[in-house]
Design a protein around this nucleic acid. Structure first.
Length: 303
DNA sequence: GCCTGGCGGAAGCTAAGAGT
DNA sequence: ACTCTTAGCTTCCGCCAGGC
């Protein structure tokens, strides 16, 4: 088995496309076909099921993909190690995040500490971000919530207060803050049910026995801001994600502390990988936060 | 011991063709 | 039109034998 064969297989298996794999590796598409085919012939196995223009991994292919992922993660780690030996002047740190807001300060600190390193950030939903980390496609991930997993190490990083906001012609627009009770019956534009902000807010409202009226569910923060600015209802957002806009007013919820959290997550087995280690060292220098036991704290138990 | 030329394999290309 | 396969080709590189 040659390295190029495995490299081609890995690229095809990840994208389920010979053409996309060729583009990724910077070779012609027939080259990829040849490499994969020769691998199959050499071992007398079938790695992909070809269904016309669509291909699928066979069971053997899926098994090999698992191994290839580990191998290429190790290969990257070897390169990172050598780069570290040269003083971390070059290298590529891959960060996955559920939103750009939580990562900017840690990336700024990392860049200041290691200006020669290239950092790429993939922003996605929490499921994809976690999957990328587990599949070695990213080195670290920034997630709001992490279920216990023996493969993972989650470091509580920041918490952000959840605030409300309204259009400038709303009756609340002249107020400096509101109370949870004020949300009773209010028209709300909110994120989808699975979103962290939505979960934290819903829980707080349930505990306060307050029932806002959800009139619209939108999957992006920017769209919610636009909807609120147009007067469709009030919005709720993590304070870190609030972007000032002359058409809207920010309204802290004075009597109820609702928080969203950011955790930096990495694979336990890669804890000592050079770039991951360097990132964690930079992280340790930033403000820590103790692990949350609840997303909402009553105001009289403020730390 | 070192240099040189031949050989073979790996890698990758273009072109053409087949399937959807 | 797009994607994958096949055929035939070139280039590059490492190995090895022969000559100095």
């Amino acid at each position: 088995m040659r390295h190029t064969q495995l490299r081609s297989f890995h690229a095809v298996a990840q994208r389920l496309s010979f053409t996309a794999a060729a583009r990724e590796l910077g070779v012609s598409q027939p080259t990829i076909t040849t490499q994969v085919k020769s691998l199959e012939q050499e071992f007398g196995v079938e790695l992909f099921v070809r269904r016309g223009r669509r291909i699928e991994l066979t069971e053997t292919g899926a098994g090999l993909l698992e191994i290839a992922r580990r191998l290429f993660a190790d290969e990257k780690e070897a390169a990172d190690y050598l780069n570290e030996t040269r003083g971390l002047r070059t290298g590529h740190l891959r960060v996955g995040a559920v939103g750009p807001y939580h990562v900017t300060d840690m990336l700024a600190a990392f860049n200041a500490r290691h200006p020669g390193l290239y950092v790429s950030v993939t922003v996605g939903n929490s499921r994809d971000t976690l999957r990328d980390l587990l599949d070695y496609r990213t080195d670290v991930a920034v997630l709001a919530h992490v279920d216990p997993d023996p493969r993972l190490v989650a470091i509580p990083y920041r918490r952000h207060r959840v605030i409300a906001f309204c259009p400038i012609d709303h009756p609340f627009a002249q107020r400096r803050s509101i109370r949870a009770r004020d949300m009773e019956g209010q028209r709300l534009v909110v994120r989808e049910a699975g979103s962290t902000t939505r979960r934290a807010f819903d829980q707080a409202m349930r505990e306060a026995d307050v029932r806002p009226k959800v009139v619209m569910e939108i999957g992006s923060r920017e769209s919610i801001r636009e909807a609120v600015a147009k007067g469709i209802g009030m919005g709720v957002v993590s304070e870190a994600e609030f972007i000032p806009d002359p058409r809207i007013r920010k309204l802290p919820i004075a009597d109820t502390e609702i928080y969203t959290y950011a955790h930096v997550v990495h694979l336990k087995e890669r804890q000592k990988a050079r770039l991951v280690h360097a990132f964690l060292q930079v992280l340790a220098g930033l403000l820590p936060v103790s692990s949350p036991s609840s997303r909402r704290r009553p105001s009289n138990s403020r730390r």
